[in-house]
């Protein structure tokens, strides 16, 4: 019997993860999370792998790359999804090397330009689908799509 495929979600704790939860809310497959903190009690994820956090350390990114190989062997995801932050970079590279489908949604907080991680993913063509949550940002880049924001910033009945 074949193993049920999962989607690997890579997102830093906090806002990146919030957006990932919203954006994958209609995915029926199992979701496995890779995160820099394990303080989440969320039944959306079948498993959580905790990796080291970094913004700029090549050493930590290299460690996470090796850890990522182990995670991919264990999980064998059918696709990968990320909303950033920088911890997604080794996984974006692994997705490219293993030809695993990779969908990247740049963070909502980047209103006027892509995030630094987003710029690297766009520059090296690491994502099969690249989305920005702001139309003026998406139009600056060939191949970057805009389909709205992960959640509604409107008033929701506020008086």
């Amino acid at each position: 019997m074949g193993r049920k495929s999962s989607i690997l979600v890579i997102a830093s704790a906090g806002g990146h993860l919030t957006q990932a939860i919203c954006a994958t809310s209609l995915v029926k497959q199992d979701l496995v999370l890779v995160c820099n903190k394990n303080m989440l009690l969320n039944d959306r994820f079948k498993r959580i792998h905790t990796i080291r956090d970094t913004q700029h350390s090549a050493f930590v990114h290299a460690l996470n790359f090796v850890r990522g190989i182990w995670i991919l062997i264990r999980e064998r995801p059918s696709a990968m999804f990320s909303t950033g932050g920088p911890i997604c970079l080794p996984f974006a590279l692994l997705a490219k090397l293993t030809r695993t489908r990779f969908v990247y949604l740049d963070t909502l907080s980047r209103v006027t330009e892509l995030s630094n991680s987003g710029k690297m993913i766009e520059k090296y063509g690491l994502a099969d689908t690249f989305l920005s949550q702001w139309e003026p940002v998406a139009t600056k880049y060939r191949g970057v799509e805009y389909h709205g924001q992960a959640f509604d910033l409107g008033d929701h009945g506020h008086q």
């Binding site: 989607i7 919203c22 954006a23 994958t24 809310s25 209609l26 995915v27 029926k28 497959q29 059918s78 696709a79 999804f81 489908r101 969908v103 949604l105 099969d128 689908t129 989305l131 389909h147 709205g148 924001q149 992960a150 959640f151 509604d152």
Partner: peptide, 12 residues
Amino acid sequence: NYDLARIINYKL
């Protein structure tokens, strides 16, 4: 935003 979630689901 379920419109975006639907698109992400399709892409994945």
